[in-house]
Design a protein around this nucleic acid. Structure first.
Length: 418
RNA sequence: GGAGGGAUGCCCGAGUGGCUAAAGGGGGCGGACUGUAAAUCCGCUGGCGUACGCCUACGUUGGUUCGAAUCCAACUCCCUCCA
């Protein structure tokens, strides 16, 4: 049983999958503040729920007086992570990467405090591996880093071995990727005294390699800690919603939908998610998760509001909760916080066929899909089922200045003339 | 380097000259039931058009044929066995 505050809470809340040396890490954390990092790849301008467990881990670290470090893979992004090699990833331009970095930083700022808080330990730090990878000289790398890597050993890693056994090509670039990742740890250790790397359980191999490298190059004992791979109780990968990834940025996913994502959690996941994705005390999480029968819905609302508050702020979360209450519990026509789109007033004046408006609204992906939705009886206009796909929608359909379109019971959007 | 097998829609997988926008399953979406849950059941599931219809799609390129996912040739990639 760990004694340090951080490890105790992390373990109790379900964050810990594996640790390279639990006792030593525990001792280090009791001795003083530890800097721990997690890497994020700037492949999009927002993070999504798939990374949330990592973010929450950093947050927890900060809560207990340690220093969280978010490492941006600005340098490695230039070659692309080969581990998802369906096809070689498209190379991103420097501008795209820079833009993505800004977006991700925005996400992280919601969850972490980047300011030093007197008496409460250091603020979070943002690092970018482009700072050292960009200027890396090949000769120096070979001499200083390469000498510490045993090819025999690398060949024995599952990830590499499975590729070789299937006689599936493994490029030199791919083979090197883990070396660069290890090097990140060594740089963070040397530059900023980072002694802990965290990540998903799929990063275990990389983390262990990094630890070895730091020990050899810097003569430092450092640690690795992984989180479990998150799936829902019914086995689905976490973080997929109706329209793709559940983004943390409000530009990519309206707050209302973020709230809905959590509201629709499966019963069996409520306790686990409360512990992982909210700041509520564990006892409170357990109490909520144990609510019998339909009472669990109250727990889901708490989960939704708390998780949304962390990401988008308390006010926006409560607005989303209220919009949901009005929409689902009162069946109100419109609620301000529902996502909305605008349409040219002239179009509305002339009238537009129902299937087309549904497609234009983004509720469905194409006209054909809109037609199918209508034929299947799942489309509603101002809460009335639409039966005729060609029904003209015009100014006469405005209610309080907006038109509400629904796909099924859960997806709603307001159309405003502009 | 040699011999054989394969590449099908979001994924898995059947199909071996026209009836094939392509069986079946998964996933997704919608409906019923419920608690905005799970499980279950039902329907839908390439794009464009109100529609007869048109276009795109079975690794790539070309060919045979009235007609090709299906036959032929070359190429690319993958798998199995031998060296």
């Amino acid at each position: 049983m760990p004694k340090s505050e951080f490890l105790r809470e992390a373990e109790a809340r379900g964050f810990i999958f594996q640790c390279t040396d639990m006792e030593a890490l525990d001792a280090a954390m009791q001795a003083g503040p530890v800097s721990g990092y997690i890497g994020f790849d700037p492949t999009a301008d927002s993070l999504h729920v798939g990374s949330l467990i990592q973010i929450m881990m950093l947050r927890l670290l900060q809560k207990h007086g340690h220093r969280p470090v978010a490492l941006m893979g600005g340098g490695t992004a230039k070659i692309g992570d080969p581990s998802f090699r369906e096809e070689a990833r498209q190379l991103m331009t420097a501008e795209t990467i820079a833009q993505n970095l800004r977006g991700i930083e925005g996400c992280l700022r919601q969850f972490l405090s980047f300011d030093d808080r007197p008496g409460e330990g250091a603020g979070a730090m943002l690092a970018n591996n482009a700072d050292w990878l960009d200027r890396l000289s090949y000769i120096d790398l070979l001499r200083d880093v390469g000498i510490h890597f045993s090819v025999n050993r690398m060949l024995s890693f599952d990830s590499v071995r499975s590729r070789l056994e299937r006689e599936q090509g493994l490029t030199f670039l791919e083979f090197n990727y883990s070396i660069l990742q290890s090097y990140d740890f060594r740089e963070l250790n040397a530059r900023h005294g980072v002694t802990l790397q965290m990540g998903g359980s799929d990063q275990w191999g990389n983390i262990v390699s990094g630890i070895d490298l730091v020990r050899r190059m810097n003569q430092q004992q450092v640690f690795g800690l992984t989180t479990p791979l998150l799936t829902t109780s019914s086995g689905a990968k976490m973080g997929k919603s109706a329209r793709g990834a559940v983004w943390l940025s409000a530009q990519r996913l309206p707050v209302f939908e973020y709230w809905q994502f959590w509201r629709n959690t499966e019963d069996a996941d409520v306790g686990r998610f409360l512990r992982l994705f909210t700041d509520l005390p564990i006892e409170e999480c357990d109490r909520l998760a144990a609510l019998p029968g339909a009472g669990i819905n109250e727990a889901k609302k708490v989960l939704a509001t708390e998780a949304t508050a962390l990401c988008h702020g308390r006010a926006a979360a409560e607005q989303a909760a209220e919009a949901a209450r009005r929409t689902f519990e009162e069946g109100a026509l419109s609620a301000d916080a529902l996502p909305s789109i605008s349409i040219a007033a002239a179009t509305l004046h002339e009238g537009i066929p129902a299937f087309r408006l549904f497609a234009d609204s983004g509720l469905v992906a194409s006209n054909g899909e809109a037609r199918r939705l209508i034929r299947g009886g799942g489309a509603r206009l101002n809460d009335e089922v639409v039966t005729d796909e060609g029904r003209m929608i015009g100014e006469g359909d405005l209610r309080e200045g907006v038109i509400k379109l629904s796909s099924g019971k859960k997806k709603h959007i307001l159309v405003r003339p502009a």
